[in-house]
Design a protein around this nucleic acid. Structure first.
Lengths: 109, 109
DNA sequence: ACCGTAATTCTAGAATTATCGAAATATAAG
DNA sequence: CTTATATTTCGATAATTCTAGAATTACGGT
């Protein structure tokens, strides 16, 4: 995963409204929630919600499937996890006398 | 940790330049790096670097200690980890028939 | 075909963020 | 006290992001 992709994903979650949206969807789990379900839990105009949802969709942190007139939203937990894993294997990689990157399995230094 | 705090921290990392700075510091490990050391690895003006560094300092993802005329920077890995842990225990919490939040120890649904 | 509900797109103003040169500050050495 | 190096602050401009009302599209029911 490229640095740009990680940055845009973190940036997508780096806004209170979108973080709330994502949290609501994570808590909703497998069944997901229609857009209206998110809107009823936050009190923001539909256009604003749609704007934020688009950002989360663009970076694949959220997916949607249509069910009649509703769009059911799902948080893609695995995308977030792999985004957060960026540094996991890089900790201390450049420290003097550090083991090679591949063998560095520290949680952290 | 408040939603606002998590959002501002994710937002701080949600920029390619700052993500690079943070990655460089994570890789540098315990000894850390002076500002000039970061600057030599990226090719950006000092004022721009200082601006980004300030954001990372403000949200406590990076710390600095002075050593003579140099400011040695360190990535605070634990702050990042606790930021990323926000959702770990919330997954599926609201799913119908879900176990209570405290007993929900799924990695993910 | 028409209506109602669901959601998005369009548009624009306000607010925030990014970039970087120039000037200022901090610290140490001579 | 002057000089040199390291870094930040100031100030100005460009670019992006946020917010939300109005208009539009999508779908299903009658």
């Amino acid at each position: 995963m490229s640095m740009e992709q990680v940055a845009t994903r973190l940036s997508a979650l780096g806004n209170v409204t979108r973080l709330e949206i994502y949290r609501i969807l994570v808590r909703a789990g497998r069944p997901g929630l229609p857009v209206a379900g998110i809107q009823s839990r936050l009190s923001i105009p539909g256009s604003t919600l749609s704007h934020h949802l688009r950002k989360l969709l663009d970076v694949e942190l959220v997916t949607q499937v249509r069910e009649g007139t509703s769009l059911i939203c799902h948080a893609d937990y695995s995308v977030m996890e792999s985004t957060f894993d960026l540094f996991a294997k890089q900790c201390c990689a450049d420290e003097q006398g550090a083991q090679s990157t591949t063998t560095n399995n520290n949680t952290c230094c």
